[in-house]
Nucleic acid binder design. Structure first.
Lengths: 248, 248
DNA sequence: ACATGTGAAAGGCTTCACAGCC
DNA sequence: GGCTGTGAAGCCTTTCACATGT
C-alpha cells in the first residue's frame, strides 16, 4: 500500500492522512475484527495470530490477513498482531476516535428501543437527539433525552454537529425524513424503514430491514425442506456452521 | 402458477418442485423486489417492465432481469412482468406461503420492540412465543403474548413447530440460547447479539449488529472528510445516490 | 417497436500456496 | 519453526449488448 511506517499513523504525508481505499467487503468486516480484538484485550492477550483472530471473528485466516494487509503492515512474522496496535489502527480507519453524534428520527416501537440501545454508546457513538412528528411524543423523556419536534431538526443538527441520522419511522415518511436530514447537512443515514430512499450521491445510506432477514431465512428453510424430501435426502448435521453476516 | 410451463417451471419432475439454486446475491434481493411488487399491486398496476420494477427496488434493470431469469421465464417480451404472477412466484420461492412461526428470545430493550414490530406480521411471519431467562419478565404480556421461561423453549418449540428463532439477548448468553434453539430443532436463527455464534452446518444464521452498521457509516464519514481536505477537494453533490443495502 | 432473456466480458472477492521475515 | 504478506488462480457477481420473441 502507500508507505508503511510501522509505529505511526497510516501513511500521512504532512498532516493530511492519505486514505487507503479498502474494498467494501473488507470495511464491512473491520468492525467484527474490532469487537473480537476488544474481547481478546479484556482477556489479557497482547498479541494474536491471524488464525486466532480469524476464529474469534468467524472468518478464515487467509481472508483476515488479506483484509489487514490493506491497512498496512501491522503484524510481525512468526509472532502475530499486536492487539492494542491493531485496535488503534482499526478505530482510526473507522473514524471511531471522533465519537460521532447520532440522531434518531421516529420514536415509535422500534425507535424507542434504539434510543435506549446500550450497544451504541459502548461502541463509540453518542445518541444526542431524538425527533418525532407526533406532538404527543414530543417532550417525552427517553434514556435521558427529550424527544424534539422534527421541525427543529435543522437547528439542532447544526448545534450538535450530527454526523449520522437513524430513521425509524413508518415507511411512508422515511423519504421526507431523509430529505430533512440531508437538508440539515447529514451525509450518513441508517434506515430501518422498508423501501428505497433516493439521495444525492454524496450521502451514504445503509438499510436494515428486519422482515427481509426473516424472508431470507425462510428461503433457506424452504430449500432445506425440499432437499430432505428428495431421493438423495439428507438429514444428518455436519459440523461447524455457515454464518452469513449481514452487511453489504 | 406452479405448473406454468412457460419455458418450464424450474425443473419439476413430477409434483416435487426441484429447487432452482439461486445465487445468494439474488436471494437477498428477492424480498426487496417483492416489497416493490406489493406496492405496485396496490397502485393497481397489472404489469411492470424490468426498468420500472428495478427503479422501485433500487437496482439496475440488467441485474433485475438476470435475477428473475433464475426463477424461470415469467415475463413477456415486449410487455413486461405480470405483477400478480411474479408476486406469487417470489413468495413461493421464499417459502412465504408457509406463514412461518417465529419465536423471540430475550425480551429486553430491543427484544421488547421486536416483539411488537408490526412489520413481521405484515410480511408473512407469526411471532408465536417470547422467552426470557429473567423470572421477573416471565408472565409479562407483550402485544398479546405472554413471556415464557426459557426452560420451556424445548416443549413450546415443538408444540408450535417454530421455524425461526430470533436472539435478542445480551452477548454473553447468545451462544447458550442458540444451542437451546438448535436442540429444540430450530434450523434458522436471526441474531441481534454482537459476536459470532457457532452452529452446525445445517443451521443458518443471519446476524444484525446495529453498532456495526454505524461503524461502517462512520468509516465513510471519515473517508469523505479526508477527501474534502485534499487538493482535488470535492464538495459538490452529484446526483442520485448509492444505496448499500444490508444483507450478505 | 418494444422489452425480455442470456451469452460473454469485466470486475470484485475469496482462497490457495508459498516467499519472505522474525 | 512459525506466521505474516501477497501474487496468482478460482469463483461469484455485475454489467454489457444483442438475439429472440411477442
Amino acid at each position: 500500500m502507500s508507505q508503511q511506517r510501522h509505529g505511526s499513523t497510516p501513511g500521512e504525508t504532512d498532516g493530511v492522512p492519505a486514505f487507503p481505499d479498502l474494498p467494501e467487503a473488507t470495511i464491512a468486516r473491520l468492525p467484527e475484527y474490532l469487537r473480537a480484538l476488544h474481547h481478546l484485550a479484556e482477556t489479557g492477550a497482547e498479541t494474536v495470530s491471524s488464525e486466532g483472530l480469524a476464529a474469534a471473528a468467524g472468518v478464515n485466516s487467509a481472508k483476515l490477513r488479506k483484509d489487514l494487509s490493506h491497512l498496512g503492515s501491522y503484524g510481525t512474522r512468526g509472532v502475530g498482531y499486536d492487539v492494542a496496535l491493531l485496535v488503534y489502527q482499526i478505530e482510526y480507519i473507522l473514524g471511531l476516535d471522533k465519537n460521532r453524534a447520532v440522531c434518531l428520527v421516529g420514536v415509535g416501537n422500534l425507535g424507542h428501543a434504539l434510543a435506549g440501545y446500550a450497544g451504541f454508546a459502548s461502541r463509540g457513538f453518542r445518541v444526542v437527539a431524538l425527533f418525532d412528528a407526533d406532538e404527543r411524543k414530543v417532550g417525552e423523556e427517553i434514556n435521558g433525552l427529550i424527544v424534539q419536534h422534527i421541525d427543529d431538526l435543522q437547528r439542532i443538527a447544526a448545534e450538535e454537529s450530527i454526523a449520522i441520522g437513524v430513521i425509524a419511522t413508518p415507511p411512508g415518511t422515511a423519504q421526507l425524513v431523509a430529505d430533512a436530514l440531508i437538508a440539515a447537512g447529514v451525509t450518513s443515514i441508517l434506515n430501518f424503514a422498508p423501501g428505497v430512499l433516493s439521495v444525492p450521491s454524496n450521502v451514504d445510506v445503509r438499510k436494515v430491514d428486519l422482515a427481509i432477514e426473516l424472508q431470507i431465512l425462510s428461503f433457506h428453510e424452504h430449500r432445506k425442506a425440499s432437499l430432505t424430501a428428495l431421493p438423495g435426502g439428507r438429514s444428518a448435521p455436519a459440523e461447524s456452521g455457515n454464518q452469513e453476516a449481514v452487511g453489504s
